[in-house]
């Protein structure tokens, strides 16, 4: 328990499970759901916090750590966990913080899609290159999320085009992209350090 932790040991640690293993192991499903629920609750907590920001017209700058959480869960635990975290989190957040289900919970689907896209790939959370890949996948996922929000806004909720662009697309991108690109690898890396995966546990023995 008291063995020295070295940089070398971290760099040689291949702790992240492959994407296949996440779904092939039947015992992972309840674990995935449990993580998703915990992630969803954390999402609500992060959503409830008022985050500083600054604006220039429709361009809003700041961080939305709840988005990075969804992407990080997707990156570490896979697509299903990522999607469920985003969906459950947004659903709970709307119910608790906004008093109801918003737009048939479709905005939750959009947020969950971020985790789903990020979770498609596998990552070695030790290597910088893999973390960069996580950032890129998060950015791609965020773009899909933003587009889905706009689609749901326009065609389900029926908001005006300028609202969809000015109040949904642009702020989601200007806040979301820096958030997921920068915070997702940080969250994933910290998570990995704080809660070692089963493989790490076994290798450390």
């Amino acid at each position: 328990m008291t063995e020295e932790v070295t940089t070398e040991s971290l760099e040689t640690d291949t702790s992240c499970e492959s994407k296949e293993s996440r779904f092939k192991k039947p015992e992972n499903l309840p674990q995935t759901i449990l993580i998703s629920i915990i992630g969803g609750l954390l999402f609500v907590l992060l959503d409830a916090i008022w985050w500083p920001h600054t604006t220039i017209g429709f361009f809003k700058f700041g961080f939305a750590p709840s988005l990075a959480l969804v992407a990080a869960v997707g990156g570490v635990r896979g697509s299903l966990a990522g999607f469920l975290t985003g969906y459950i989190g947004k659903l709970l957040s709307d119910i608790i913080l906004s008093g109801g289900i918003i737009a048939f919970s479709l905005y939750g689907v959009a947020i969950g899609f971020l985790g789903l896209v990020v979770g498609i790939a596998g990552y070695n959370l030790i290597q910088g290159r893999s973390l960069a890949k996580l950032s890129i996948m998060s950015a791609i996922g965020l773009v899909f999320t933003a587009l889905l929000i706009v689609v749901f806004g326009l065609f389900v909720e029926g908001v005006a085009v300028i609202v969809a662009i000015g109040f949904q697309l642009i702020p989601t991108l200007t806040v979301g992209l820096p958030t997921v690109i920068l915070l997702t690898p940080l969250f994933a890396r910290l998570w990995h350090a704080a809660i070692p995966s089963p493989i790490e546990t076994e290798s450390s023995k």
């Binding site: 328990m1 932790v5 971290l10 973390l131 690898p185 890396r189 910290l190 990995h192 704080a194």
Partner: peptide, 19 residues
Amino acid sequence: ERGLIMSKTLKSNKFVTVA
């Protein structure tokens, strides 16, 4: 130990440090 790991985690990777 966990704190040490987290600290090293952040320090041990240039990408993480830059981010």
